[in-house]
Simulated assay, not measured.
Amino acid sequence: MSAKTKLPTGQEAIRTKGWIGAHKYLLLRRISQAAFLLIFLIGPWFGLWLVKGNLAGSLTLDVLPLTDPLVLLQGIAAQYWPEFTALLGALIVGVTYALIGGRVYCSWVCPINPVTDGAHWLHEKLGMPKGWQPKRETRYWMLGMVFAASALTGTIAWEFVNPITMLQRGLVFGIGFAWTFVIAVFLFDLFVSRRGWCGHICPVGAFYDLLGAKSLLRVTAVDRAKCDDCMDCFAVCPEMHVITPALRGKGTDTPLILSGDCTNCGRCIDVCAQDVFQFTHRFDTRPSPGRGEEDATPSSAPCNRAA
């Protein structure tokens, strides 16, 4: 650990890059999430139907069908064979996320992400304990249960309780029962389990984790030899366990974060004052000396903060 661990998370990056630079990807994510949500809302709110539907299934400009592959697979499990447009929409979405990274959906599209981020921010501000931490495999069991429930009930079971759908429904129709599910997720992450919903429970995240396991878009700790042990990257990462193999590796150990759990949120890039991290692709083979190894540019050691 270095003396910089005593500084507030991201403070050194703010001094080095400025506030905007230290929050660039966070701001871009919020813009992206708001844009995806707004494009579905301007129809019912203002009568401008650029897109009809929601994140489960939509039709853009009456031409482009998009279908959540998880929804389509639940329908098949319920013994409903989808129409060609639904199959085509699921193929488009599935291939896109398989290439760019499945859990990009979680950090750049899902409207529940700001809810859970808000709960985490308040959790940290109140200095609350970590709380109950279910095993990460729990979300895969939840995913299996979703398919089982669809098969047993003959319905797309998850859509009855999906907080993502409920949030959009609540924004369209106003205050109602749908908000119960969104509030429940917020309270769960705040009082029961820090980062518990997205990291341990949500079956949607589990599905997109599996879908993007071999995706092209990756974060790399390409300059890990510069890391000064401030630990900020660990503090802001929603899946902090994915950082260690890349950042602490030595010699021929890859600096790429290859875990499907990585959401490609870019926060580790934002808060690192040493610019250890950057976006790249999974075939990036640039050499990256580990800590304490010889490098063309001497450095003091790694960049980031455990939560």
Rank of each mutant, 00 (worst) to 15 (best):
L41E: 09
K24R: 13
A273Y: 01
V242W: 00
F147M: 05
K24F: 14
I39P: 11
P8R: 08
E239Q: 10
G21D: 02
K125S: 08
L256Y: 03
I20L: 06
A151Y: 00
C198I: 10
F191K: 14
L247G: 13
Q33G: 08
G57T: 07
W197A: 13
W132M: 08
S107E: 00
I42A: 04
M142V: 02
Q168R: 09
N113A: 10
Y80A: 15
Q74V: 07
L171A: 11
L28R: 10
R15G: 14
G127W: 02
V204Y: 00
P111T: 08
I112W: 00
A184N: 02
R194F: 07
D253S: 15
A184H: 06
W179G: 13
A86T: 15
R15E: 11
R29H: 15
A3L: 14
S193T: 10
T263Y: 00
G18E: 05
L88M: 09
D270C: 05
I201L: 11
L73N: 07
F279N: 13
K250L: 15
G47D: 08
Q133N: 13
A221F: 05
S259L: 02
T180R: 14
S259M: 03
G127A: 09
P287Q: 05
D261N: 09
R305V: 15
T254P: 12
G292M: 05
L50N: 12
V222E: 08
T165Y: 07
P302K: 13
P289C: 11
S259D: 03
R291I: 15
G43V: 02
S193Q: 06
I42R: 02
C265R: 06
C198F: 02
D232R: 10
R139W: 00
L152C: 15
L211F: 00
S215N: 02
Y140Q: 04
N264H: 04
G94M: 01
V109S: 03
W158G: 09
T297Y: 12
S107Y: 01
V276Q: 06
P238M: 01
P82L: 00
L256A: 06
Y97L: 11
L190R: 07
G57Q: 09
C303W: 02
C202I: 06
C268D: 09
Y97D: 04
S288E: 03
D284S: 14
I20W: 01
